[in-house]
Design a protein around this nucleic acid. Structure first.
Length: 561
RNA sequence: UGGGGUGUAGCCAAGUGGUAAGGCAGCGGACUCUGACUCCGCCAUUCGGGGGUUCAAAUCCUCCCACCCCAGCCA
């Protein structure tokens, strides 16, 4: 399999695998990533993908992609396709090892008959309500179903007729015969097959009974000879059940290892909640750039390599944890700093007239596309008498440490001249500053500093008014306004949404060279952050930019205090 | 209050009886035509708490505390 370079520090799962390899329990490592195709993949899945594919790559084994498609009422082909696209985008390849639990429906059914024949499963006619009553509670044992004593012959006949479609949906189920008094509720005669008339994305209407996840997952791992079956913590209680099935069915027994799922601050990770956000139109879709989905992050401009770095950096353990979103953002910055060409763009334009520059004249400055990577080449930036700078780079009454424009202050235009602010023009009605009138020093073009001239600390970005390309820019912020939504159980998710998660700027101005940028191209707008050309809403010559993430801003921290 | 887990710095996380890795954040400094990047330095006498075993304990024993998961014909 061709996989990206996978870094992986020591962790408890590697320790277990090392022991298994050393003891001869296993000669090779076979893992699997087992999504249910009932939604889009999110960054939490990325943790599992990087772990499973990463381990396989580290030990030169292999990793299967298996769809756990046992519930046709929630699963769709759209999701199957999207999941495959996302896994590939993340950089992993499963070659011919693509499987579906539905591939095993016939085998699974045979397993069910085998259990019945061994008198370890029975058909139960209890209603869902009755079933709940019989199940008992966390502290009280359950009661045995009155149907538990049916003969093997009767059970086999009933099971076959279930499959043949003789009974109504929900009228009967097949249950394993284990122990209604077990303190582990999963062992209180769990349901293993239910009657469900729903069209399955892969098997169509071939079946009207479907295995429960618990009766499919472990056996699928067994059939595929998975050596180490990694899953999240909530399945620890199910492990004894999988053990019981493997033993009863006398089949190969994979080893399940549980790890803590990923939580990220200021977002949610459950497919149910993400689906709600989509359905209730709080976001534009699964791929809204604010979503923690892989498709959302892709559209947002997060490089796949950054997500891989992130998954490596957070490690893997068994304790519940919430990772700060800034860790992910830092991985994105690290990646983009190296790969993104630089450009200049002004988000909130403030007009500046260079009063001593000839009217109608213009010139071009040459600037490197990347300060540390000359191979990326240079671009030219037009300059003229009227330019725009960002409003944030001007203060009427600036503090001493503010190194930008202010009355009677000097600043360098990035790659251009040093200018001096001589005059402030205001809107007479509102008093708002509408223009700055400045003078430039002709000796300082292209970054030059004449002998004896004092260096200017402040350097700001700008665009030429006559040449700039007007573009739409969207500034994204955290989806939720609270860091840990799990700690806000009493509040509805909708109250937790950050009302300022999206800010649209209709008339930002960028370097003219950006007109030819292609969807997916990422740039660093110097001093502002990284921006990507939106893949869905851009048109040729009219790119729409999504802000991926801002640059680190130590000034912002200083300004807060 | 049954069962299963987890607790090492602000956030992750190594560590498996020999005297607390690493990363991120933070702080201080250097460099800088991006207040970015990069670089250098600092940052747990202590491992949820109490007892105990040992020459030696984050690691072993014991009691306690906190948090998470489980009562879908979901996965």
């Amino acid at each position: 399999m061709s996989q990206p370079e996978v870094q992986m520090g020591p962790n408890f799962i590697r320790n277990i695998i090392d022991e298994d390899l050393a003891s001869g329990k296993h000669q090779t490592v076979i893992t699997r990533f087992p999504p249910e195709p009932n939604g889009y993949l999110h960054i939490g899945h990325a943790k599992s993908i990087c772990l499973n594919f990463g381990l396989a790559s580290y030990y030169r084994g292999r990793c299967h992609l298996r769809f756990d498609d046992t519930n046709p009422v929630k699963e769709e082909q759209e999701y199957i396709d999207a999941i495959k696209e996302d896994v590939r985008w993340l950089g992993f390849e499963w070659d011919e090892y693509e499987f579906h639990a539905s591939d095993y429906f016939e085998t699974l059914y045979a397993y069910a008959e085998k259990l019945v024949e061994k008198d370890q499963a029975f058909v139960c006619d209890l209603t869902p309500d009755e079933m709940r009553e019989y199940r008992g509670t966390l502290t009280e044992p359950g009661k045995q179903s009155p149907f538990r004593g049916r003969s093997v012959e009767e059970n086999l006949d009933l099971l076959r007729r279930m499959r043949a479609g003789e009974f109504a949906d929900g009228s009967r189920v097949l249950r394993a015969k284990i122990d209604m008094a077990s303190p582990n509720l999963n062992l209180r005669d769990p349901i293993i097959y239910r009657i469900l008339r729903a069209t399955h994305p892969r098997t169509g209407d071939a079946w009207c009974i479907y295995p429960m996840y618990d009766f499919a997952h472990g056996q699928s791992d067994s059939i595929e000879e998975i050596t180490h079956s990694l899953c999240t913590l909530e399945f620890q209680d199910h492990r004894p059940l999988y053990d019981w099935f493997c033993e009863a069915l006398e089949i190969y027994h994979p080893q399940q290892i549980e790890f803590a799922r990923l939580n990220l601050t200021y977002t949610v990770m459950s497919k149910r909640r993400l689906l709600e956000l989509v359905n209730e139109k709080h976001v534009s879709g699964w791929d809204d750039p604010r979503m923690p989905t892989l498709s959302g992050m892709r559209r947002r401009g997060f490089p796949a390599a950054a997500i891989r770095t992130f998954c490596e950096r957070i490690g893997v353990g068994k304790s519940d944890s919430v990772i700060d979103m800034t860790v992910l953002e830092d991985c994105v910055r690290e990646e983009l700093d190296q790969s993104a060409p630089r450009a200049m763009g002004v988000l909130r334009p403030l007009k500046v007239t260079i009063t001593n520059y000839p009217e109608g004249a213009s010139e071009e400055f040459t600037a490197p596309c990347h300060p540390k990577n000359p191979e990326m080449g240079c671009r030219t930036i037009p300059f003229s008498r009227e330019i725009y700078v960002d409003r944030d780079d001007f203060m009427e009454d600036p503090p001493k440490k503010f190194f930008r424009l202010g009355p009677d202050r000097e600043v360098r235009l990035r790659y251009g001249y040093i200018i001096h602010c001589d005059e402030i023009i205001r809107d007479p009605a509102s008093g708002e500053v509408t223009e700055l009138r400045c003078s430039y020093d002709p000796e300082t073009g292209g970054g030059k500093l004449p002998e004896g001239r004092k260096k200017v600390k402040g350097i700001i970005h700008w665009v030429s008014a006559a040449h700039a390309l007007p573009v739409k820019v969207r500034l994204y912020d955290r989806l939720l306004s609270v860091a840990d939504p799990a700690g806000e159980k009493q509040r509805d998710d909708r109250e937790l949404l950050n009302p300022d998660s999206l800010e649209q700027i209709d008339k930002a101005l960028v370097e003219p060279g950006l007109a030819t940028a292609e969807p997916g191209d990422a740039f660093q707008f110097e001093r502002l952050g990284y921006f990507v050309v939106d893949a869905a809403d851009s048109e040729p010559g009219r790119p729409v930019f999504n802000r991926v993430v801002t640059l680190r801003d130590t000034w912002a921290k200083v300004a807060e205090n």
